[in-house]
């Protein structure tokens, strides 16, 4: 148990660092809100090990702490909804034999972006749905890249019997 908690804490810290690095190299000039989603690789890693509770816990802790440190409580509304929602979607797909980590990474990225659009349309009005095509293409690219990256990491780490 102690080992698990330590591991989760390390993962949450690593995910926060990923999120911070990402915020330094903002991709928002392409379209508002577009990012690579490096922190999601941690969630993917835990889901690959079949640890949904761990994935949800690490992601929620990361989102809340990042919001406290780097952004405002207002953006917490966006990131928490999207973060929890996409983790659940990825959990539902990660159990399937026919879906690899690349597949559920893309599905998670798409779900994340759609959920943020839902919150944004509730706050700013329906005009935000114009971003859907950009955000879907972005989900395809960033989800694919992060998924492929995670596939490599999972391959290397499994021999260490962490999971």
């Amino acid at each position: 148990m102690a080992k698990k908690i330590t591991l989760y804490a390390l993962f949450a810290a690593l995910a926060m660092i990923f999120g911070y690095i990402e915020s330094l190299y903002s991709l928002s000039f392409i379209a508002p809100g577009i990012k690579l989603g490096l922190a999601n690789s941690i969630v993917l890693l835990l889901l690959c090990g079949g640890d949904f509770k761990g994935a949800l816990a690490v992601n929620t802790v990361r989102i809340i702490l990042s919001a406290l440190l780097f952004s405002t409580p207002f953006t917490l509304l966006f990131s928490l909804t999207a973060g929890i929602g996409s983790t659940v979607i990825m959990r539902l797909l990660s159990g399937r034999e026919s879906v690899s980590v690349i597949g559920f990474s893309i599905a998670g990225a798409a779900a994340h972006n759609l959920l943020q659009l839902c919150v944004a349309s509730a706050v700013f009005g329906s005009a935000v749905w114009y971003y859907t095509p950009f955000l879907m293409i972005s989900a395809l690219i960033s989800g694919g890249v992060i998924g492929a990256l995670s596939a490599v990491i999972v391959k290397k780490i499994k021999t260490n019997r962490y999971f």
């Binding site: 034999e97 690899s100 597949g103 879907m136």
Partner: peptide
């Protein structure tokens, strides 16, 4: 590396992108 389900997911997201566009 890509499996059958992955192709379905990629196709679904692409369809969503095209339709929303």
């Amino acid at each position: 590396m890509l499996r059958k389900g992955d192709i379905v997911i990629i196709a679904a997201v692409l369809v969503l992108a095209v339709f929303s566009a």
